[in-house]
Design a protein around this nucleic acid. Structure first.
Lengths: 191, 191
DNA sequence: ATTTAAAGTAACACTTGTGTCACTATAAAA
DNA sequence: TTTTATAGTGACACAAGTGTTACTTTAAAT
C-alpha cells in the first residue's frame, strides 16, 4: 500500500545520537541529519515537526533502553555484584550521560509534542532513582556503604566517573578497575 | 586622543563566559554578545575578526588565571594540605572545567590569530600537568597515595568530581567534604 | 577651536538553517 | 492494470547570523 522507507527508525536514532554527540544541541539541524541519512531534508518533516520534537523523541527511546538495562540490577545477588553491574552498565553506556546535557540546552520549545516528550523525560530520573535508591539502601543496610555519606553524593560520584577522560589511553580493564578501586576504597594508602 | 570605550575587557570576558556556559559553543554568537554588552555588533569586529578568535583569546585569559592559582599548590606544606588546596581550587573554579569542552567543539577555524591561540591553549595542560604530577609524585613518595593506581586516573577523578551535580542542594561544606572523603578513603565501609 | 585617532553605528550583501507545499515515485490492494 | 496511501523531492519565502564599510561620535593633543 505504500512506498518503502529509505531509513529505519533504528538508523535514524543512531545517526541522531552521532550528530548530537558531535555537534551538540545548537549545532544539530535537519540539513546535517538528512545528509547523513542520504535523504532530502523535507522528508524528515514527514515524521517530525521540528528539531525539539525529534530530539526529545530520541532521548525518550534512549533513556528507556537504559532504564530497562538498569532494572536488571535487582537480579545481581549481593551488594558487590550490584556495584560491579552498575559500574559496567555505566561504562558500557557512556554516551547516555553526555546526552543528558543536551536536554538541558533546550529552550521552551514551540511544539506540543515536544513539550509532552519533555514532561515524560522529566519523570524518568525518578524511575531511575528508585533502582539506585534501593541499591544504596541495600548497601548501607548490609554495612557495605558508609552511612554518613549522603546518597546523592554516592550516586553523583558513580555516575560522573564515566566522564573521566582516558587521555593516556590506558586499557579499558585497568582503567575501569582503577576507578572502581578509588570509588570503593579511596586513593589514599591505608595508614 | 580617542573616545572612551563602552565596555572593559573584564566586562567582555565575564559576559563571554556567561554566554558560553549558557548557550555552548555553537549557540554563542556576536549578536548575543553585543546585546548583552549594550553595544552594536559591528563594534566587536574592531577587536576580533570572528567568534573563534574571541573565544580562544578568552580561554587563554581564563586558563592562565587558573594556572596562576594552581601554582600556589607548592607552598601548601604537607600532602594533605596540598590535597585540600587542590580540591578547594577546583570547586571554586568549577566553570573552568565546563569551558574546556567548548574548545573541543571548535573546528579548524578560518582565522590566523585563532589558530595561534589554539596552539597556545594546547600547551597549557602540559603546564598544569607539571604541578599536578609533582603533587601526585609527592603523595606516592610519602606513602600517602596508592602506588598502583595510574596517575591519570587519580587526576581524572579529582578533576571530574567538580562536575557532580548537587541536585538536592546539600550545603557546600557537606557536599565538598563528602566528595573528598570518597575520593580519599572510598565509599565502602571498612570491613 | 581645530584636528585627529580610536570607538561606535547602521545598513548592505551574503550565507545558512527553517518550515511548507505542490509535486513525483513506488509498493501493495483492488 | 488501475487505484491509493505513503515516501520522498526540490523550490520558495522566510528568519537569523556573518563580515564589511561608509559614516558619526567623542576625548585628547595641538
Amino acid at each position: 500500500m505504500a512506498r518503502e522507507r529509505k531509513f529505519s527508525n533504528e538508523e535514524l536514532f543512531q545517526t541522531v545520537k552521532k550528530m548530537l554527540l558531535q555537534h551538540g544541541y545548537e549545532g544539530f539541524h535537519f540539513g546535517l541529519l538528512a545528509e547523513q541519512l542520504d535523504i532530502s531534508r523535507g522528508a524528515l518533516y514527514k515524521y517530525y515537526e521540528n528539531k525539539d520534537e525529534l530530539i526529545t523523541d530520541f532521548m525518550l527511546y534512549e533513556m528507556q533502553i537504559f532504564i530497562g538495562d538498569l532494572a536488571q540490577i535487582e537480579n545481581q545477588g549481593d551488594f558487590e555484584a550490584q556495584f560491579d553491574f552498575l559500574m559496567k552498565l555505566i561504562f558500557d553506556k557512556a554516551e547516555v550521560h553526555q546526552l543528558i546535557t543536551v536536554v538541558k540546552q533546550m529552550g521552551s520549545s514551540s511544539n506540543e509534542k515536544a513539550k509532552e516528550n519533555k514532561e515524560q523525560l522529566e519523570k524518568l530520573p525518578l524511575e531511575m532513582y528508585r533502582y539506585l535508591q534501593n541499591f544504596i539502601s541495600f548497601g548501607k543496610r548490609e554495612g557495605k556503604l558508609k552511612e554518613h555519606i549522603p546518597d546523592s553524593v554516592i550516586l553523583g560520584l558513580i555516575f560522573q566517573s564515566i566522564a573521566i577522560p582516558n587521555h593516556f589511553g590506558l586499557p579499558k580493564g585497568v582503567w575501569v578497575n582503577s576507578i572502581k578501586e578509588i570509588i570503593s576504597k579511596g586513593m589514599f594508602a591505608h595508614s
